[in-house]
Simulated scan of single mutants.
Amino acid sequence: MRKALMNIFLTYLQIVALRARAKLQAFAAQEPVRLRAALTSAALALAVVFPAIDAGTAETIGAVGVVALPILVGESARRKVTPVE
């Protein structure tokens, strides 16, 4: 009985994780600028909470996010944030 409940709970956690991943991917594709800002803010917040993470490390994490996110999300995201002439 206990093992069956644990399996049900683990299956539920896997489903929740898959749904969260799908929503994050959709959000990254639709709002890449907001996602980059959120990731940078999270890195800076970690620098405040954990002083061992200095501002340079937080800036590096933000810079990697700025560069890597458009590559990971794809060309459609780049078109959304590129200014139109």
Rank of each mutant, 00 (worst) to 15 (best):
Q25M: 12
A55N: 04
L44T: 06
A4C: 09
I15P: 01
R79E: 07
P51S: 10
L18D: 01
L69H: 02
L69Y: 03
A42Q: 02
A29M: 13
K3I: 10
R34E: 10
S76T: 15
A68L: 12
A47S: 13
L39Y: 02
E75H: 04
G74M: 07
L18N: 05
S41K: 07
I71E: 09
S76M: 10
D54E: 11
R78N: 07
F50L: 10
G65C: 10
D54I: 04
G74T: 07
T60M: 14
I53W: 02
M6A: 14
G56K: 14
L24Q: 04
A43N: 04
V66G: 03
P70W: 02
G62A: 10
S41E: 07
D54V: 11
A52I: 15
V66L: 11
G65K: 01
L35N: 01
A42H: 00
Q14P: 00
F50C: 08
D54W: 06
G62F: 05
I53C: 02
L24D: 04
I8P: 00
A47I: 02
L46W: 14
V81N: 00
Q14H: 08
I53H: 02
A20M: 14
K23T: 14
E31C: 00
S41G: 13
A77C: 03
L46P: 06
